[in-house]
Design a protein around this nucleic acid. Structure first.
Lengths: 245, 245
DNA sequence: GTATTCAGAACTGTATTCACTTTTCCCTCC
DNA sequence: GGAGGGAAAAGTGAATACAGTTCTGAATAC
């Protein structure tokens, strides 16, 4: 292994399957809507932009379609799945159900030590600075909290699904989170954990339901307020999203 | 297995993307374990057996990996995901949670007409013959019932997930179902629907939980009894599964 | 002015070829 | 006889070439 491998991959292509790298890159482009919904993905153009041939790109596109980020149409290639309001609500509803289900399992299975570790994490997160520019970092921390909590369910498939769901709603949550009403979020995380440590699954589940549902309502509001500005000129955001993700 | 077991290739290739066709074919081979877990998938051999080049085959393998049927390893291609007991329980647990969640939504959203239509379907299913050879057909009907019920939740993503889960546990359910204790199944389906028509979500949810959990216990039992014979010589079954799916 | 047709361009889907990695297996050495 | 080494074979990953479809736009008919 040479010293170059440690350097942040800028020009030289990092090792590993390029299809995997491309998969991540295109996913970031899709979830941040740098690739606009409804717009067809031009394979030769995108391949050239990413510095690979069409073959690994197509593998990535295939996977992304299987994961629900893209839509494949015969002889017409791929398009980014539009972020229509109905789908956002559907995904959020699913997420709520999934997280509450995982939480109930976690209440039975998590050890006290695991809960304590997660609590420490939640408290560290609370002390993060809250500059508006950090919204992305905060979102990442929030996702991590929910994922780690789901992991305590010891159900790998649920964790996998939650991760996928989070990726798919990340953009809209990011928009939402810039409105900076985070204190309650962090507070509720800690409270959920307290219920868990008391092994009160019911109380924890109810709080979690409220926790997610409240966001769902805010987002519904936002959607009603208008989608128009959402897709406009978020190249910078997209850049940042890619870095964090 | 030899290459010749696969579907006849030369015989008139149906229209449409061959990658899609191959995707279905290989999926059938994976879920029925004609491709044995742990065994590497030889791309050139399988491609030749299916009468296509490696390109569309690899697209199919990619998708199947994203869907959880296969595992991809760098520079070592794909293997069928093993059917270890822990994973079966995980998938079943997930399925139970998902179905109960969907059911609760269905209780709020389904119209009386929709429930009546599903009830008619359940009654037709009950009158199907029960020769042991029909176990596959009965399984298909059972899956259909549960999927249609989930559709009444009006949450497309949940339906999508359920479908995927069903495919992944289909094999083990088929083994289980040949023990022919179906009458209770059908009876419970109808009873769940009666609770729904009465808009008693709680009763319906509890019954559904029992309905699935009981199977989970039977399957756990079966797993304890030993997995050894499961993988042995089910070429015929595989054929039939492919036809039904 | 509008609709239609049809050839050429653009693009997707598949096959083939090339590059690189892993596995196999024979040979050597101890 | 067993361990290690190393070429050859086999296999995967990526690039290129080819085939078939869809899109575009100008010419033509009405």
């Amino acid at each position: 292994m040479t010293a170059d491998d440690a350097a942040p991959a800028a020009a030289s292509t990092p090792p590993g399957r390029s299809a995997d790298r491309v998969h991540e890159q295109v996913k970031a482009m899709a979830v941040t809507y740098r690739l606009r919904p409804g717009e067809r993905v031009n394979e030769v153009e995108l391949a050239r932009a990413l510095g690979v041939s069409r073959t690994p790109l197509r593998e990535a596109l295939n996977r992304l379609a299987a994961e629900g980020f893209l839509i494949a149409t015969a002889n017409r290639g791929y398009t980014v799945r539009p972020l229509d309001p109905k789908r956002v609500l559907t995904l959020y509803e699913y997420r709520a159900m999934l997280e509450v289900g995982a939480l109930r399992l976690a209440a039975e299975r998590a050890t006290d030590a695991e809960l304590a570790a997660l609590e420490a994490f939640a408290e560290r997160s609370r002390d993060e600075p809250d500059d508006d520019i950090q919204a992305l970092r905060l979102l990442a921390l929030d996702e991590q909290f929910h994922e780690r909590l789901a992991q305590l369910s010891a159900n790998e498939e649920m964790v996998r699904s939650l991760r996928s769901l989070n990726e798919r709603v990340r953009f809209i949550r990011w928009i939402d989170m810039r409105k900076g009403r985070r204190p309650t979020t962090q507070q509720e995380h800690l409270q959920i954990l307290r219920h868990l440590r008391a092994r009160d699954a019911e109380a924890a589940a109810q709080l979690m339901t409220r926790h997610i549902t409240r966001r769902l309502e805010e987002i519904s509001e936002m959607i009603r307020a208008g989608f128009a500005e959402i897709y406009t000129d978020n190249a910078l955001a997209a850049q940042a999203m890619g870095d964090v993700a």
